[in-house]
């Protein structure tokens, strides 16, 4: 690691004033400390926000508010979350290990960097780590890479499970900007596609701080499922993941939510499938038809052609499991 200054955050809106462009906020540290050990992140100053950013989880009139410092394990086991947003709990518990979930914060989870092996190898080109050097995964080993929304500049995928559920549940990200004003970013606009600037993972303004996430109320408690397919049963990043939620009236689908991890630079919503499902009967035949729709959107790379069929199957299984949940 490069030497750095360590200071405690002042708290409140003063915290954003403390941050210099060369500094970084540190919350759980599970990703940042690792990246600093590998010299991928080299901040000159760390501002410890673990004691000052809210960690509380509270019901609001139109949903729930999760403080950005709430640890992943706390969110996943919170009774209000389990009762009203079981999909979020299931997704969080599918990610990382109990130790990491005890450390990782809600805000930090959203800001974690890709796990693309080329991003982590400083001896090889990577546009995300070193803009302008090229994408090694595009022509290299791209078995784990994106199948939708990628560009010639970057084929990395976003690693979070929690974010897939937050995308499906139409969450909002509450931030405090450098100007100390509070703003709301809809979750679907929070993360970015790589385009020509893959070094930018998200649309969080420079030096801004995530303070909370809000999720509106919904009717997806009864029929939801998080399916994660990976190289081993537990403690691995997703090859494909599917967050599925159905609001049923009898056997008719009133509304549906479907999002995937392991497929794109951001948690990916399958809007066309959701639209197709609305008003249809919830049965295996409809789910099978719905899952084929994703094929129009995806574009595989030489080593991840398998993801096309895996994704289609995963969507079918996840939707079917919504009925058994």
């Amino acid at each position: 690691m490069k030497p750095f200054n360590f200071i405690k955050a002042a708290g409140g809106t003063q915290t954003v004033k403390q941050k210099k462009r060369t500094g970084r906020f540190i919350a759980g540290g599970t990703n940042l400390v690792d990246l600093m050990k590998k010299h991928i992140e080299q901040p000159e100053e760390l501002i410890d926000i673990s004691g000052s950013v809210p960690a509380s989880i509270g019901k609001k009139a139109a949903g729930i508010r999760i403080g950005a410092m709430a640890r992943n394990s706390v969110v996943a086991t919170n009774p209000d979350i389990i009762a009203a947003y079981p999909l979020l709990s299931k997704a969080i518990l599918a990610g990382a290990s109990p130790q990491i979930r005890n450390m990782a914060s809600t805000g930090g989870n959203m800001l974690q960097r890709t796990r693309c092996p080329y991003f982590y190898d400083p001896t090889l080109p990577c546009n995300k780590r070193n803009p302008g050097t090229g994408c090694s995964a595009l022509t290299g080993d791209n078995r784990m890479s994106a199948i939708v929304g990628w560009s010639e500049n970057c084929v990395a995928v976003h690693p979070s499970d929690m974010c897939v559920a937050l995308a499906a549940l139409d969450a909002n990200v509450i931030i405090t900007g450098k100007d100390q004003l509070t703003k709301t970013i809809p979750f679907k606009n929070f993360h970015r596609l790589p385009g020509n600037t893959p070094e930018q993972d998200n649309n969080l303004p420079a030096d801004a701080l995530i303070t909370a996430v809000e999720i509106p109320g919904n009717a997806f408690q009864k029929n939801c499922f998080y399916l994660k397919l990976r190289d081993r049963d537990s403690y691995a990043f997703a090859l494909i993941s599917v967050a599925a939620a159905l609001h049923l009236n009898g056997t008719t689908i009133v509304s549906a939510r479907l999002a995937s991890g392991g497929v794109a630079h951001k948690p990916w919503r399958w809007y066309s499938v959701e639209q197709f499902l609305e008003g249809k009967q919830a049965n295996a035949q409809v789910f099978q038809q719905a899952a084929t729709l994703v094929q129009k959107e995806i574009k595989t790379l030489p080593h991840n052609v398998y993801k096309a069929t895996m994704l289609q199957g995963a969507i079918e299984v996840a939707l079917q499991n919504c009925l058994n949940a």
Binding site: I26, G29, V33, D34, L46, D48, P98, Q99, I100, M103
Partner: peptide, 13 residues
């Protein structure tokens, strides 16, 4: 009382 990874925890925290 909660299990964590000491290799990713800064002593300063």
């Amino acid at each position: 009382g909660k299990r964590v990874l000491s290799c990713l925890t800064l002593a300063a925290m």
